[in-house]
Design a protein around this nucleic acid. Structure first.
Length: 852
RNA sequence: GCGGGCGUGGCGAAAUUGGUAAACGCAGCGGACUUAAAAUCCGCCGACCGUAUAGGUCUUGCCGGUUCAAUUCCGGCCGCCCGCACCA
């Protein structure tokens, strides 16, 4: 009998052995020659300092794919690095007087050690942190090239200001009107800042979503919605009567429903519209209204509760189609400045918001779209607007047209009148990237009074962050640094100041995968990209993934990346979270899983013996203390067990619940596998006895099933197939010694199929079996197709769709013979009760159904 | 409100071209081994009727449809989760 498998002894030994020969180093294009490449990448981690179980799951999944592809003969790139800029480092600096850089690099060291314990097949030679000057210097060069190509610009604009973090946020970082990290209500401020022109690619980013057929449907939909394309008409309404100064052209609006122009009842301006602002200077009512609107949050509840309110400006505009008719101009709180032109024409009969507003202020409601099944004489609009399609009426030259034709006709008319034109509007805004923070990539610009914003010359990059900074005052340490920002202008050499804003850290993660592929080598980048399989959390469905798609396009267009499609990630998989039960003491304190135990029928806190409440299963989080520390799991059970459990039980895209019993099950499996490798059966030709054939069939079928489960990202099914295989071999344990050839083949195949899931154990088994080299470098066992087929097959026999019996027949038996056998079956005869079958369906190899 | 997804035993789940529903694991029950426990091994384990290792009936959120056959396809409900949201 073999001794128990001791992961604490075996695992470090194998990791050291892999490292010694640099087993997982990716080959360059030249070295690899004709071998196909596979770039497998997990979203790189933020170096918080501690690994959590979510990391284990994420990287275990990527490692299964990477190891499998390597076994399949691919030249695999599976790198690791650190998304190292960001706010937590500055918070640590404030709380503990430690430099953000020092804190970050210490965390990286700690997490690298933790990662290395997991036995991931990573190429560490390409490791970098985004806070390395080599990386952010290269990023600064990209920024300047993008600036040259007009993909970066600077403008004053209203920005989302997070009052807690003292910085600007991108639109994507504002959730429910609150900062995505701080949770503080976002304020509006006017600031000059830098923008990436992501809208230049809006159409392409949208179109290409359709080509991402190895992305989850959900993520594609979210991206498409975020880009938010709508076709319509941008037009102006000239003033009738008083024309305010500076608005001689009238009021510019955007609409997707120009067919309803005859139903126009009023014009509504956003409270932040330039005309509203201009008028407010003269009107106290209006400026008070504007102030009120600014106060109301944009959270879900706020929007739902907020009444539609507005103020009549007293101005009037001319209706474009109806001679002599004028429309009042209101300022209304429901019109957004951030979409379209910040002004709309309202057709209350065809839009619920317009209708609510019209009812409140007693404005006209004129129906112009008749639903297909309605009668023009009786159709009325009361509390609900009709937003669907129909036939136009009450609409002059548009009468009788369908909604679709009416839209086209109205646009043509407006265009011929010179009042506007067909346009496409996107919800996507340009990406504001200036952040008033220290721990980020400095924007490589010098501001000169004479020359303006001047790019830092290439030979002066990187613009390094100064080390001697303080965090004892609010605001940006770069801005108050005594000397750093004072530099001569690169052009005129007069005194000038550096830009003290740094780039949004999402920029850092928008191209790191290209840097892994080739630090300076564009040919290597072209070879590796796109990433073949990307794995990460669905929380990045919009932000990171959209920004990365933008960056690869921009890099392509500035000559930094030969990637015609511009798509960085050919395959994307979004994995579910790791959850755990929650525990609460009677006084409401959250308790850690290690602080509680099951006692009889109830749960108690170990320290006090007091009863506790077991709460719901939720995402592991520090605040609810329902976390499990990967280090202690690895120490207790080994990395392989932790990996296996993270991959079993639940489909990868779904959440998985961490349970003690589940981990123990995985640990048991580890010992069961090891126990198969006691004796080392000699390498001979597989035997042909029944036992040998049965073992060979089991092995080849299992290997094929595991292969398919990995290809399809269904690791839980792969783990189940491993269990079945091992259980089957255990059952035949006694017979294995009599058939050493088949046994050796089975155990060799098993070790290789085990490798992606439990690589250390697989190496130990491989060595025990007497195989040469590393199983981590061994080829995937190709299943023999002849062994996947059975000679005979057991068919269920249904009578009227209910299973009544079964027969075992040779696989090749023809349908008529199968039918005859089925009809002769004793049980079937009993159920047929003498009746003649109306119909007999024989699906070869599947089923027989007799209809009587 | 709009969009997407999900709903199967006590629990996590399988059944990925419409063809034996519940593989595999967890929990549970019974047994073997042991002075004992742990570990390990063996057996049972959807519900109901039944003494049952006989047999039968029912069962994939609910109602209906297509089909010889539906967890799978179609229509309508119900519930849960996620995303977006006064986007004109």
């Amino acid at each position: 009998m073999t001794a128990r498998y001791d992961p604490s002894e075996a695992e470090p030994k194998w990791r050291a052995a892999w490292a010694e020969v640099d087993l997982f180093r990716a080959l360059s294009h030249a070295e690899a020659g004709d071998r196909p490449k596979a770039y497998v990448l997990e979203m790189f981690p933020y170096p918080s300092g501690r690994l959590h179980m979510g990391h284990v799951r994420n990287y275990a999944m990527g490692d299964v794919v990477a190891r499998y592809r390597r076994a399949k003969g691919y030249n695999v790139l599976h790198p690791m690095g650190w998304d190292a800029f960001g706010l937590p480092a500055e918070n640590a600096a404030m709380e503990r007087s430690v430099h953000p850089g020092e804190w970050t690099y210490k965390n990286i060291d700690a997490m690298r050690a933790q990662f290395q314990q997991l036995g991931l097949s990573l190429d560490w030679s390409r490791e970098f942190a985004t806070c390395d000057p080599e990386y952010y210097g290269a990023q600064q060069a990209l920024f300047l090239k993008m600036l040259e190509k007009d993909l970066v610009y600077r403008k004053a604009s209203k920005v989302n200001w997070d009052p807690v973090e003292n910085t600007v946020l991108a639109n994507e970082q504002v959730v429910d009107g609150k900062g995505w990290r701080s949770g503080a209500p976002v304020e509006q401020r006017e600031l000059t800042q830098w923008f990436f022109k992501i809208t230049a690619y809006a159409q392409d980013l949208l179109d290409a979503v359709k080509t991402l057929d190895r992305w989850p449907e959900k993520v594609r939909t979210m991206q498409a919605n975020w880009i938010g394309r709508s076709e319509g008409l941008q037009m102006r309404f000239p003033f009738a009567g008083d024309t305010p100064e500076g608005f001689e052209d009238g009021i510019e609006i955007f609409t997707t429903r120009p067919d309803t122009l005859f139903g126009a009842s009023f014009i509504a301006l956003s409270p932040d519209h330039p005309l509203t602002i201009a008028l407010a200077e003269e009107s106290e009512t209006l400026s008070a209204f504007r102030a009120d609107c600014a106060k109301v949050g944009t959270s879900e509840e706020a929007i739902e509760k907020a009444d539609k309110v507005g103020i009549d400006t007293g101005l009037r505009v001319a209706h474009p189609f109806i001679e002599g008719e004028t429309l009042p101009v209101w300022t209304a709180n429901f019109v957004l400045m951030g979409y379209g032109t910040g002004a709309i024409f309202a057709c209350p009969a065809g839009d619920q918001r317009d209708l609510d507003f019209a009812r409140k202020y007693d404005l006209p409601v004129k129906p112009v779209v008749l639903p297909a099944d309605a009668d023009a004489d009786t159709f009325i609009i009361e509390g609900e607007a009709y937003v669907g399609p129909g036939t136009l009426y009450n609409s002059g030259f548009l009468d009788g047209l369908s909604t679709e034709d009416g839209i086209a006709a109205a646009i043509n008319k407006i265009e011929s009148m010179g009042l506007g034109e067909r346009t496409v509007n996107f919800r996507l805004r340009d990406w504001g990237v200036s952040r008033q923070r220290y721990w980020g990539c400095p924007i490589p610009i010098v501001h000169c009074e004479t020359c303006g914003a001047v790019p830092v010359p290439g030979d002066q990059l990187p613009v390094r962050l100064p080390e001697d900074v303080t965090f004892d005052a609010p605001g940006n340490p770069l801005d108050r640094h005594p000397s750093w920002k004072h530099v001569p202008c690169p052009v005129c050499e007069k005194d000038a100041v550096r830009e003290t804003d740094t780039l949004d850290t999402f920029a850092d993660s928008s191209w790191y995968f290209a840097r892994f592929a080739g630090a300076e080598d564009l040919e290597e980048r072209a070879y590796w990209l796109p990433v073949d399989q990307y794995v990460g959390g669905v929380e990045h469905a919009v932000l990171h993934l959209l920004y990365a798609r933008f960056f690869t396009r921009a890099m392509r267009d500035i000559g930094e990346l030969d990637l015609p499609s511009g798509e960085p990630f050919a395959g994307l998989f979004t994995q579910g979270m790791v959850t755990h039960e929650t525990y609460r003491a009677e006084d409401g304190r959250w308790l850690q899983p290690t602080d509680v135990e099951h006692a009889g029928d109830s749960w108690i806190e170990i320290a006090s013996g007091a009863p506790i409440t077991v709460g719901g299963v939720e995402k592991m989080s520090k605040s609810k203390k329902n976390t499990v520390d990967p280090d202690s799991i690895v120490a207790t059970y080994g990395a392989d067990t932790a990996r296996l459990f993270m991959l079993s039980d639940s489909p990868p895209e779904r959440d998985v619940e961490w349970t003690q019993a589940g981990v123990e099950g995985a640990a048991r499996f580890q010992q069961r596998v090891w126990s198969l490798y006691g004796a080392s059966p000699s390498i001979t030709e597989p035997e042909t006895s029944n036992a040998a054939i049965s073992i060979r069939k089991l092995s080849h079928k299992s290997a094929a099933a595991i292969e398919k489960s990995i290809e399809d990202f269904r690791f839980n099914a792969g783990v189940a197939a491993l269990y079945e295989w091992v259980n089957g071999l255990k059952k035949m344990d006694a017979e294995l010694s009599a058939i050493p050839g088949a046994a050796h083949e089975a155990l060799s195949m098993l070790a290789r199929c085990l490798t992606p899931f439990m690589p250390h154990l697989a190496e130990s088994c491989w060595a025990q079996l007497g195989e040469a080299g590393f199983v981590s470098a061994a080829p995937w066992p190709e299943a023999d197709p002849t062994l996947l087929q059975d000679d005979s097959v057991t068919l269920p026999i249904q009578v009227n769709g209910k299973r009544r019996s079964e027969i075992t027949v040779p696989k090749s038996m023809d349908k008529a013979d199968v039918e005859a056998l089925a009809l002769a079956d004793e049980t079937v005869v009993g159920f047929m009760d003498g009746a003649a079958p109306k119909k007999v369906i024989v699906v070869p190899g599947r089923i027989v159904n007799i209809v009587i």
